[in-house]
Design a protein around this nucleic acid. Structure first.
Length: 460
DNA sequence: ATGTTC
């Protein structure tokens, strides 16, 4: 190992972490050329393709590498949180109607398409360069949303020409679709506030209704990852990179292959931001249809949108000196502290919102980034609850249970297209997200702002 | 996560 692997977790979580290969994977990452400081592991870590999910690793721009496995298959999988002025009392009589309206308006499921229209090549190029701004230009949401989206909803340096025809073909009909697996659109209530000043700045008050969207770059990002894993299998050999695990395929970040991957990854990331921007507009339409009024009267506003599968060139302080590195966050959320120029102006005194979705039965959390996260983890934090059961184990454990009925009795209205997906995503399949939040706070990597309780869920 | 194995 060139650097240590560093695990941030509490004792109860370490027990879960030891059950899979995630620690070994974090150690493998520490072997890669140009890794700076440490291979970092967040408390919600679990096993992934090569790199663990819940891992953060930064590499030198000259001697370092870039690796598709360090970003993940779902490029710019991320979370978008929307607040409203609606209250628990407003919601109660209309909850079922709203869930069904959302299910009608937001396409979900494997291979889902048709939210807007199948994009032609020119439009798709624009989506991949402009990201969320493309959607706003086409009438999906407002200019103001962009300021509350990480990176303004588009990374510069996207190269649509590096995205294969097959990836384009898969992405063209999928802008504005949720997908499947752990992706969702939830109706939530602000159940607890831990840090009132930050909650107020973010627009989150007790009993308020929020909407959370969790999804990524759909088939387009998947195909980009797959294409470059293939291409880099040759590249790793060509550049003589020693890999402790073949799944860590990497090339020098400054090689033609590295540049090309980054161009394609940024294009896919921008596609994902456009996707979440369109979905937000579909949610807005559904909410307005059920409650009447418009964005302004509903207080419908973007709190924040974060990526949790991405690689970014960032400037950080290393041994007292400013240095640019390429930070791979795979199942890890950016968590910049107060005062950082990339934090939206209205939040600057608090820090960047960190959105951590939990399972559909328990809770999701809003936290805020800290100086310690910046100093020790490249401004990063955890991204979710972390699986406890594999998809197969979860399906087996669910057996013939009627999860829609069970969730309903527990106060959560669920509309899922696939019972199989629902079984894989049942609450028991996940660790308690509260334990992850507790570990983050104890480690000082984020500060809890508010707890959100799901009351309506739309899934693929 | 993924037109869930071109």
């Amino acid at each position: 190992m060139r650097v240590p692997a560093r695990i941030f977790a509490t004792e109860s979580l370490v027990e879960a972490i030891r059950k899979d290969q995630s620690v070994q994977q974090a150690c493998n990452v520490a072997h890669l050329p140009g890794i700076v400081r440490a291979s970092l592991v967040m408390p919600d870590v679990h096993e992934g393709y090569g790199f663990p999910i819940g891992g953060v690793a930064a590499f030198d721009l000259k001697e370092g590498i870039v690796s598709p496995g360090g970003v993940g298959y779902d490029i710019n999988c991320g979370v978008r949180l929307i607040c409203t002025h609606l209250t628990k009392e407003d919601l109660e009589p209309k909850l079922k109607q709203l869930v069904h309206q959302l299910q009608r308006d937001v396409p979900a499921g494997v291979g889902s398409e048709g939210a807007i229209f199948t994009l032609n090549d020119r439009d798709l190029d624009e989506v991949m360069v402009e990201g969320a701004r493309w959607a706003v230009k086409r009438g999906f949401g407002q200019e103001e949303d962009l300021a509350f989206t990480e990176a303004g909803g588009a990374l510069p340096g996207a190269n649509p020409d590096a995205v294969s025809p097959r990836a384009r073909e898969r992405g063209a009909p999928q802008v504005g679709t949720l997908g499947s697996g752990n992706h969702f659109c939830e109706i939530q209530l602000v159940e607890e506030v831990f840090y009132p000043e930050a909650a107020e700045a973010f627009g989150l008050g007790l009993g308020q209704v929020t909407f959370m969207i969790h999804c990524g770059s759909r088939g387009l990002g998947y195909q980009v990852c797959d294409d470059f894993l293939d291409l880099m299998r040759l590249g790793a050999k060509k550049y003589g990179i020693d890999l402790p695990d073949p799944q860590l395929v990497s090339v020098p970040v400054n090689s033609p292959e590295g540049e090309r991957y980054l161009g394609a990854m940024r294009a896919a990331a921008n596609f994902a931001w456009a996707n979440r921007q369109v979905i937000m507009a579909l949610v807005e339409k559904a909410v307005a249809r059920v409650f009447g009024g418009d964005r302004r009267t509903l207080g419908f506003r973007l709190v924040y949108d974060v990526a949790h599968n991405i690689a970014k060139v960032e400037e950080h302080l290393v041994e007292g000196k400013k240095r640019k590195v390429i930070v791979h966050r795979k199942g890890a959320t950016r968590a910049f502290p107060a005062g950082h120029p990339e934090t939206p102006a209205p939040y600057r005194e608090m820090g960047q919102p960190v959105l951590i979705p939990g399972d559909m039965g328990r809770a999701s959390y809003v936290l805020v980034g800290t100086e310690k996260a910046m100093a020790e983890c490249w401004g990063s934090s955890a991204h979710g609850a972390g699986r406890m059961l594999s998809r197969t184990a979860a399906r087996r454990a669910a057996g013939r249970r009627n999860l829609v009925k069970e969730m309903g009795e527990a106060g959560v209205v669920v509309a899922a297209r696939s019972p199989k997906t629902l079984a894989e995503e049942m609450p028991e399949a996940y660790k308690d997200v509260s334990l992850v939040v507790e570990a983050l706070e104890e480690a000082g990597l984020a500060r809890a702002v508010a707890k959100l309780r799901p009351v309506g869920v739309v899934k693929g």
